[in-house]
Amino acid sequence: MSAMTLTDVAAPAKLNLFLHIVGRRADGYHLLQSVFVLIDWADTLHFERRADGRLQRHDLTAPLPADDLCLRAARALRAASGTSFGADISIDKQVPWGAGMGGGSSDAASTLLALNRLWDLGWSRERLMALGLSLGADVPFFIGGQNAFVEGVGEVLTPLALPRQWLAVVKPAAGIETRAIFASPLLARDNKPDKVAGFLVDAGIQSLLDGYGINVMQPPAESECPEVTKVARVLQERFGNSRMTGSGSAVFARAGTGHQPLASLPSDLPEGWVGRMCRSLEEHPLRGWASD
Rank of each mutant, 00 (worst) to 15 (best):
A3L: 14
M4E: 14
M4K: 14
T7H: 13
A11L: 03
N16R: 04
G23Y: 08
A26S: 15
H30M: 10
L31K: 07
S34I: 00
D43L: 03
H46Y: 08
E48C: 11
R50C: 10
R50W: 11
D52R: 01
G53P: 12
R54A: 15
R54Y: 12
L55C: 06
T61W: 07
A62N: 09
A62P: 07
L64C: 07
P65D: 04
A66S: 13
D68W: 03
L71F: 06
L71H: 10
L71V: 10
R72Q: 15
A73T: 11
A76R: 15
W97P: 11
G98H: 03
G102V: 02
G103Y: 09
G103D: 04
G103V: 09
S106H: 05
A109I: 10
L112W: 06
L112T: 05
L113M: 13
N116P: 12
R117L: 13
D120N: 12
R125L: 09
S134K: 14
A137Q: 07
A137H: 04
V139A: 08
P140F: 04
F149G: 08
F149L: 14
E151G: 13
V156A: 05
V156S: 07
L157M: 03
L160V: 11
R164E: 14
W166S: 01
V170G: 01
P172A: 00
I176M: 09
R179P: 10
A180I: 00
F182V: 08
A188I: 13
K192W: 06
P193E: 07
K195L: 14
L200P: 00
G204E: 04
G204L: 06
Y212S: 09
I214V: 15
M217C: 15
Q218M: 09
P220L: 05
P220A: 03
A221E: 00
E222K: 15
S223F: 10
S223Q: 14
P226F: 08
E227N: 05
A232C: 14
E237N: 13
E237R: 14
E237I: 04
F239M: 08
A255N: 03
H259A: 14
Q260R: 12
P261I: 12
L262V: 14
L262G: 10
L265C: 05
P266Q: 02
D268W: 01
P270Y: 03
G272S: 09
W273I: 01
R276T: 12
M277Y: 06
R279V: 08
E282Q: 14
H284A: 05
P285M: 02
L286D: 01
G288T: 11
A290Y: 09
A290L: 01
A290D: 10
